[in-house]
Design a protein around this nucleic acid. Sequence first.
DNA 1: CTTGACACCTAGTGTTGCTAGGCCTAGTGT
DNA 2: ACACTAGGCCTAGCAACACTAGGTGTCAAG
Lengths: 112, 112
Amino acid sequence: MNAESLKGHMDMLVLSVVARGPLHGYGVIDALRERSDGSFDLAEGTVYPVLHRLERAGLLTHAWSESTGRRRKLYRLTPAGTARLREQQSRWREFVDAVESVIGGRAWPAMA
Amino acid sequence: MNAESLKGHMDMLVLSVVARGPLHGYGVIDALRERSDGSFDLAEGTVYPVLHRLERAGLLTHAWSESTGRRRKLYRLTPAGTARLREQQSRWREFVDAVESVIGGRAWPAMA
DNA sequence: CTTGACACCTAGTGTTGCTAGGCCTAGTGT
DNA sequence: ACACTAGGCCTAGCAACACTAGGTGTCAAG
């Protein structure tokens, strides 16, 4: 999957998977890879900065977990995060519709 | 429409409208605005660099037109541009599917 | 004779996802 | 004992990109 296509949509994707239940960084990566059927196979260096940014923005909070002896930073949505997710999903629909109507619309046989 | 969402998709959008027939810069802007029903209302400073980049990449060529007394740079697709457009559209489908299955998919496998 | 639409252009900015590294612990070989 | 992998966290710097804010010039309308 091309890197650039993700720009501007990462927040929504991360918020989406965290919305289903508390997750730590690695868990977010796994969830995105699995739910996208392998399409989104992100590096840690991609995901961690996103989590930090979202937390700084007040959309996520974290709590440390040591249960397994391994330290994990479990993130979950704040109410603002839930609201933002809903908003971004509706923006996403509009975006897809707009793109589809540009590339999809009927036209004279594309030539050249 | 948020700026960041467009990243990585501009090329496809511009190629798409030019594929319908030769267009100059302003024409591209108009076409995108109209076809997207106002969602994509781009500034010249956004579109011109894209056209130049696409031409440098061999996906577009231009010819000057002076017919109306106004100089216009009419762009059209090269064969490579047509191929790239097709490829990007199929990538677009995959991208949309991947995103949808992340945000849409049903919640955690109730998992026993 | 100024205003605004049309038509072109570019240097610089801010955001963003990625690369490439680093640190630490737990388990698995050998 | 030692190496190696996987899990888990992190950040500095890079490159791409869309946008801002400016510029030049023509033409029609008031």
